[in-house]
Amino acid sequence: MTQVWRCTGLRWGEGVPVLGWEGGRRSGLERGKRVAFAVVAGSARTCVGARGHGCPMRAEVPGRSTSARCEECARLDRAHSVAADTVADDPRPYRVYLAWFGPGMVKVGITAVERGPARLLEQGAVSFSWLGRGPLMAARRAEELLRAALRVPDRIAYAGKRAVRAVLPPAGERTAELAELHARAVALDGWPESLERAPFRAVDHSGVFGLDGLPRVDGVVSELIAGGAVSGDVLAAAGPDLHLATGRGVVVLDTRLMTGWELAVAERDEVTVPVREWGDTGVQDGLF
């Protein structure tokens, strides 16, 4: 009988990317690791639930969805999300950060102090610096201040992140762009009094992600399908993305597309899921 696994997603712990599986199993994704799985033929992708609870309807969800949640579970998950600005009374201290993904691609965000740099690794930030630390509402006000005064967005599309990973400028140029924006940010009038400004200290993740010498992308997996397979060697891992060396070139797999599917060991070395050639319009912005 074929053993079936259900992926719970990619996590970054202590700077190491790890795939989680229902039942507690974990698979490290160090560079050179072989990834080879097949979606069980005849299976359907089902909702992963919300806030640690399974979906009561076991609803079917689209293959292209990176959240793998039905409408109701997505609503419940968002109702408890700090990022969605639906939580106002969290007593934990928060940090405001600037994250650099490529030339001209810098975003502002907030994360709980207890999470450390995990949020930045999860987003695939090539480099970042803290801006300040304080209560949640003060951190939110600072985030909004930067968006309004400096036109710094709070989101960068994954298509843009993927487009530049293989052609990044030297670390010095990355740091200089981040430093210039940091200086402008902390000098703004209207900075919340309860938010302590943080000095500029750039943290670079290019080595952690494996971006040095990374080949250009040839294609991006657009969705998984029942009976389809993915097989390749890990060249890099950034955020939820795996850059894989496959028989059809360098293919990016957003591991968020794996959740909700029944997966088994691949019997053949091939990629037989839909792959959008790099440069096509509409490149999506997510057992071994």
Rank of each mutant, 00 (worst) to 15 (best):
V4P: 04
E14W: 03
V16G: 02
L19W: 02
R34T: 12
V39K: 04
V39N: 05
T46H: 15
A59Y: 04
V61S: 12
G63T: 10
T66A: 05
R69E: 00
A74R: 07
A74D: 13
R75P: 04
D85H: 04
R92E: 09
P93Y: 02
A99P: 02
P103E: 08
I110S: 12
A112V: 04
A112F: 04
A112T: 04
G116P: 03
P117G: 01
A118P: 09
R119A: 14
S127I: 06
W130S: 05
G132A: 03
M137W: 10
A139Q: 00
A139M: 06
A139V: 12
L146C: 11
L146A: 05
R151I: 08
V152E: 00
P153A: 01
A159H: 14
A163K: 11
L168Y: 05
P169Y: 04
L178A: 09
H182W: 11
A183I: 00
R184Q: 11
A185N: 11
A185Q: 10
V186F: 02
A187E: 15
A187G: 14
D189G: 14
E193F: 10
L195V: 03
R197A: 12
A198F: 08
P199T: 11
F200S: 00
A202Y: 10
V203I: 08
D204P: 11
D204C: 00
P215Q: 01
V221Y: 05
E223R: 15
I225M: 15
D233K: 06
V250D: 07
V252W: 08
V252D: 03
D254T: 13
E262T: 12
L263W: 00
A264G: 15
E267R: 15
